[in-house]
Design a protein around this nucleic acid. Structure first.
Length: 563
RNA sequence: GGCGGCAUAGCCAAGUGGUAAGGCAGGGGUCUGCAAAACCCCUAUCCUCAGUUCGAUUCUGAGUGCCGCCUCCA
């Protein structure tokens, strides 16, 4: 089976043939580090992460390089506005990039070269371009001569004479031709600058990638990639420079990913319709976002909305739920092997066909059905999912206290002590877990994903058992902490059971109606000797607690205390 | 103005010259101490028109609509 990829340069899907197998060289354009990463970045790097995983599956040794553009106008403006150095600013956002992409399960590149670390190489490249007539120097500025490159426009399929020059941006009158672009620009007073034969200044954007590709991977690489918005002018300009610097073809395959759309419009900084990954992670687990980005083919646009990501959330949650079924983790009998193998084969066949993830994920659901039908094979689902970076963060670690509660419940249930069994079920629920009985009399627990009562962000659940637990089980305390606003609420099983509302949903709503009255952040219910009539709530802020005394669900007193 | 892409059920989304995967949501049922889960069943003449063909959603042409690039952008 041969991997086939769509090549922007040829406009066709073609078999992927490495230059020096089993090595594969891949350069992916990285981010300009002056802000947090947004959904568009996630989409791009999830796409290339998938490509890298599939290449690895093919048996290739992938050397993947991805740059950080850490010097440009936006970075300088942002740093000046915030009164800090460009270095401090870029270091912070490079760290943020690694944090966010790590959460998404992106396999790190082999190296992340920074533009500022390749100044000598860029200056050398520009000097060579001038020497060959591919570029010219006017008053401290160096321009690339587009007219000097016969094949200019081949990547983006553009005819230079047909472009609307200056349609949306003013053309610099000193250029020899409107399409010529800046390779080196002089710096203004107070801006970071590097010495060069053309005076102090800094490089234009398009040169860094060429210099870094040459320095880290060589003059001829297998794959060059990035978002579709980079095709023109960025990659076109890179290609033109590379061709003037070397006779090598630069990159064999150009791979570009599609956009994230919001209300049928491209998500972009300038439009302002973007969501940072931090925002999204506060509501959805990174794994859900990865699934969401993965399930649509990498070149197709993905429309982002609450509806589409909730849809993905539901699908992913169902798929992942079976991973908790330790009872289904048995070895697959020989008679069933064929069905699982067929799914695996179809999975890889789909990915080899220009990364057809939709069909690959269909196989995941097929395996899911097989697992339920035959009571085995969880390992196959885990293996295939992990091959595309899903399920990596499934810790599957159920807290000891939850395990104990579940074990106690099954004892009670078998003894038909249903009232106690139900109390234990509630207790497990308070800790953020759901318990399900299985057909054969067993059970399993899985984490439940709740939303914050205050802001609708994700919450982390925990359950604790006081020393006096047992008996009426009032000592069982569930706690939820919002990762968005920091809201904390806590309720004992006794309190929960004696609330007037009937359903859990109504009880939650009742807790909420009490809590919102006082406040903004944080808090928990806790039992008092007379908790039925006068429960107290403690609201927590960093560094202090505030105790809200409640009576008949109304706040009757407040007491702040230092922690 | 130039170039490119897309139009498939309520929503998301594959795919093939021979009458359409999968997911989500919805409806009905089986099972069940409770609660779930699971399982079964149901929901599309694939934007319009013309052409090629024995046969097109799939190929060709025209049209309509939407999107992207031609500015920084993943």
């Amino acid at each position: 089976m041969t991997l086939c990829l769509y090549n922007t340069l040829s406009g066709r899907v073609e078999p992927f043939i490495p230059i020096n197998p089993p090595d594969v060289t891949m350069y992916v354009c990285g981010v300009t580090v002056y802000d947090d990463c947004h959904m568009g970045h996630a989409r791009a790097y999830v796409a290339f992460d998938l490509l890298k995983r599939v290449l690895t599956q093919c048996g290739y040794r992938v050397k993947h390089i991805q740059n950080f553009t850490d010097i440009d106008d936006k970075i300088i403006d942002r740093a000046q506005a915030q009164g800090e150095s460009t270095t401090a600013l870029t270091q912070r956002y490079i760290a943020a990039y690694h944090r966010d992409m790590g959460a998404l399960g992106i396999i790190p590149a082999e190296a992340y070269p920074k533009a500022t670390d390749y100044m000598p190489q860029m200056i050398d490249a520009i000097a060579r371009l001038i020497a060959t007539g591919g570029a010219y120097h006017i008053n401290g500025t160096v321009y690339f001569r587009v007219g000097g490159c016969a094949t200019y426009g081949e990547l983006s399929n553009k005819d230079v004479s047909q472009l609307q020059n200056g349609a949306r941006v003013e053309v610099d009158p000193s250029k020899a031709h409107p399409m010529d672009f800046v390779l080196w620009k002089p710096s203004k007073v107070g801006e970071p600058s590097w010495d060069s034969p053309w005076g102090p200044g800094r490089p234009g954007w398009h040169t860094e990638c060429v210099a870094m590709v040459h320095a880290t991977l060589g003059e001829h690489i297998d794959i060059h990639g990035g978002g579709a918005d980079l095709v023109f002018p960025h990659h076109e300009n890179e290609l033109a420079q590379a061709k003037c610097l070397s006779h090598a073809p630069f990159a064999n395959v150009w791979v570009h990913n599609g956009f994230i759309m919001v209300n049928d419009q491209k998500m972009s900084k300038s439009v302002g319709n973007f969501f940072t990954l931090r925002d999204v992670f506060s509501r959805y687990e990174p794994a859900v976002l990865r699934y969401f980005l993965l399930k649509t083919h990498y070149r197709a646009p993905i429309s982002y909305s609450t509806e589409t990501i909730d849809d993905a959330h539901a699908a992913y949650t169902r798929l992942a739920s079976v991973l908790d079924r330790q009872d289904y983790d048995a070895a697959i009998p020989a008679s069933k092997q064929g069905a699982f193998e067929a799914r695996k084969a179809a999975f890889w066949q789909a990915l080899y066909a220009d990364l057809n993830v939709s069909v690959a994920i269909e196989q995941l659901f097929g395996v899911y059905d097989l697992i339920h039908a035959h009571g085995c094979g969880v390992s196959v689902l885990r293996e295939l999912g992990q091959a595309i970076g899903l399920f990596d963060d499934e810790s599957g670690q159920v807290p000891t206290v939850i395990r104990q509660l579940a074990a106690d419940r099954i004892v009670a249930r078998r003894a038909k002590a249903y009232e106690r069994a139900d109390q234990l079920r509630w207790a497990i629920g308070l800790g953020g877990y759901d318990l399900e009985d299985t057909r054969d009399g067993g059970y399993h627990v899985h984490k439940r994903h709740e939303r914050c009562l205050m802001c609708d962000c994700r919450v982390e659940s925990a359950v604790t058992v006081d020393a006096d637990a047992g008996g009426d089980m009032d000592g069982i305390v569930g706690q939820e902490t919002c990762i968005g606003c920091g809201f904390v609420w806590m309720v004992t099983l006794g309190f929960w059971r004696h609330m007037s509302a009937k359903s859990d949903a109504e009880k939650r709503e009742q807790c909420r109606s009490v809590l919102v009255e006082g406040v903004v952040m944080g808090g928990f219910f806790y039992k008092t000797p007379q908790w039925l009539n006068a429960a107290s709530a403690v609201y927590a802020k960093p560094g202090s607690h505030r105790l809200f005394y409640l009576n008949n669900n109304r706040i009757v007193g407040v007491n702040t205390q230092e922690v």
